[in-house]
């Protein structure tokens, strides 16, 4: 059972930060930016490159996050702001196009092979019955730290209040003296940073390749939608639910149901399960499960 919960935790970590980034940026620009999953890939590969250039991984990771945040702002100003003038559906299709372009660029620059960070090896740690690696625990710590910092930023700082105000009512925010465009780009920057950190966390626990973003695209969207798109902390709760569903599907022994000693569903069923839950939840709560319970960004 402890192993089950640790598997849920690890999968939550895979999804949470990218889903939070997606939700944050949706709260202000009202379209789900698919390209965010590629920011995760960019973050992990940039950190790898910077580590290869001789920087310690924490410094390389930090620099990579800042660079990806900058890339997110650049793409927002040059592409998405203009597309949004034609509507959120056009902007979403545009973000899909950007996703494909970035994927092609990554293929040319980084190649199709999987890579790993240069990490020291550590023995597996036993926490009660669960077995965890140091790198998994590091990813958990990074994710928890980032979510706590984001929550403090949102609810304890003037910038956070301005972000929440702009997300709630852009026109009124401007009438209150808030530069809504500056706030939007600040949130876009943060979403890039969060996605990059999510990508680095994913790569820390295993390998990175240019498919990393597409692999998490659907569950990340499921988590963000389930949490109530635009609700940053709801996205974390959404990630927990999706991770639980996926882990249940792949961990539960269905053998006794069909008279076999052991029968586990293939891992490929995990995504289908998460979407089954998403559809069921949205039939009951069309705007997500936590849209009223947790404040919008």
């Amino acid at each position: 059972m402890v192993q089950f919960f640790s598997d849920v935790l690890i999968r939550t970590v895979d999804l949470a930060l990218i889903a939070v980034g997606l939700s944050c940026v949706y709260s202000l620009i009202r379209f789900p930016n698919i390209a965010l999953v590629q920011y995760a890939v960019a973050g992990s590969f940039l950190a790898l490159l910077l580590q290869g250039a001789g920087l310690p991984l924490p410094v390389a990771g930090l620099l990579a996050c800042l660079l990806v945040g900058g890339l997110a702002v650049l793409l927002n100003v040059t592409v998405f702001e203009r597309l949004l003038a034609s509507g959120s559906a056009i902007a979403m299709v545009g973000s899909l196009a950007v996703t494909m372009i970035l994927s092609a660029v990554f293929l040319v620059v980084f190649g199709p092979d999987s890579r790993r960070f240069d990490l020291d090896s550590h023995p597996v740690i036993r926490v009660l019955d669960a077995r965890l690696t140091v790198h998994q625990l590091t990813a958990v710590g990074l994710t928890a730290g980032a979510v706590i910092v984001l929550a403090l930023l949102l609810f304890r700082t003037t910038l956070g209040r301005s972000m929440r105000a702009t997300a709630t009512n852009r026109v009124l925010a401007a009438a209150t003296g808030i530069d809504a465009r500056l706030i939007t780009n600040t949130v876009v920057f943060l979403s890039g940073v969060l996605a990059a950190l999510g990508g680095i966390g994913l790569a820390l626990k295993g390998e990175m390749n240019i498919q990393l973003g597409m692999d998490v695209l659907l569950p990340v969207f499921a988590a963000a939608i389930l949490g109530g798109l635009g609700n940053a902390l709801g996205a974390v709760a959404g990630a927990v639910i999706i991770a639980t569903a996926e882990t249940l599907v792949t961990n539960v022994n269905l053998g006794p149901l069909v008279g076999e000693p052991l029968l586990f569903l293939p891992a490929s069923y995990a995504t289908a399960m998460s979407f089954l839950i998403l559809v069921a939840a949205l039939l009951v709560r069309p705007h997500g499960l936590f849209v009223n319970e947790v404040k919008r960004v």
């Binding site: 209040r161 929440r164 009438a175 003296g177 919008r296």
Partner: peptide
């Protein structure tokens, strides 16, 4: 400027609404 409708930040508290006006 006080708009006609949607003139408060509904998801923020009353004190947060007021303080936002003087955040600078």
């Amino acid at each position: 400027f006080v708009p006609q409708t949607d003139n408060v930040f509904a998801t923020l508290s009353v004190s947060e609404n007021i303080r936002l006006g003087a955040r600078h």
